[in-house]
Design a protein around this nucleic acid. Sequence first.
DNA 1: TAGATTGTTAATCGATTAACAATC
DNA 2: TAGATTGTTAATCGATTAACAATC
Lengths: 213, 213
Amino acid sequence: MKLAKLSVMRLFQYKEFLIRAKSIGIKNLFSDDLAEAMGTTSTQVRKDFSLFGLSGNKRAGYKLDDLLAQLNELLGKNEKQRVVIVGAGNIGRALMKYEGFYKDGLEIVALFDSDPNVYNETATPPVLPLEHLYEFVNRNKIEVGVIAVPYHAAQQVLDIMILAGIKGVMNFAPIALRAPKDLYINDVNLKLELESVAYFVNALKRDRTKNDV
Amino acid sequence: MKLAKLSVMRLFQYKEFLIRAKSIGIKNLFSDDLAEAMGTTSTQVRKDFSLFGLSGNKRAGYKLDDLLAQLNELLGKNEKQRVVIVGAGNIGRALMKYEGFYKDGLEIVALFDSDPNVYNETATPPVLPLEHLYEFVNRNKIEVGVIAVPYHAAQQVLDIMILAGIKGVMNFAPIALRAPKDLYINDVNLKLELESVAYFVNALKRDRTKNDV
DNA sequence: TAGATTGTTAATCGATTAACAATC
DNA sequence: TAGATTGTTAATCGATTAACAATC
């Protein structure tokens, strides 16, 4: 299957919206309704669906329950995905505390850190010594990891993860990680994202000023 | 100026790398060195530079100090950008505590929340009542805001921000916000990012299984 | 000079958007 | 049926990559 990363991301968002729509009693909708809610176009919606074989009815649009069932199937809601987080700093702990994961099939099973002061083996999820990372991941066959450590530690953590069997990583460290091609890496750089907002605000302001003159 | 969003993002990353390189005494480098460090190609690096008029020397590559100075100029390091965060939950507080912002020109000047239990007017930055958002932003001419509230409150918060004069927003709420075109919005959906990692891990596994058969 | 590197133009790739036939 | 909506094919757009001339 082709990756079509951006389409997949939107499928997750359609799903999110459909769950909300269902909760307020909606039973059927058109691609236009979805587009409107998502801030995209109905063409985009139908294109995404077409890519993944999701189909509706040429007269009555989409049946919400059917669509949702198909999306759940496609996106693998049914398989729980267990996740470890390395780094119990600000970001690691924020993710740990986020309650929204569980109902969508994501389970944070443990955090790891190198600082003994934050160990907490009896918490849920437990915060464990970094040295246990390999063994924990390997024994529990964990496939998804989050790297939320300072940049100078990130590559080292990733190397352990790979050895232990991790197949996909969400990386918050602001560094280009080296990894084999079959590892899926998703870099998220929050400082960069915020910096870019500031940049574009300034850039647009300059533009406006220029055009005013 | 064209937006070239992805190029701008990379410029910030080049800058980050140059600062580290400088700290270990490097004085000159080639596009190839930058590419290697960033996990991209030298063509990409030179293309990015070319887009923004950054030039090197056809024989000796780039002088680190010059390049850094030009990048700082371009990316506006010199203007401090003040930022408000709305929502003092997990994400809002994690961002607040992040120390890396200040040295790159970003200053979190206040958080806002609707829960009186988290108010703290004397902290740095202070956590203030949401009702003060409009007045604070307006009076201090803040232009950048972060939305880190639950999705059902996000649009409301954005509307206040816009009225108060905010021009760019980093939005963590998983919802498509409605806003005039001249507002710059950067959506960051952490759950979605993690879900997609899990998805691609499964998808690639399926692929591999299929090919093995 | 010969070799290495930059900077730019052209080609390719992937994703979005437009157009429109099929059909309920 | 006529009108509305889907699903797909073609066109466009933006970003990346390849090719290569310029030149230090």
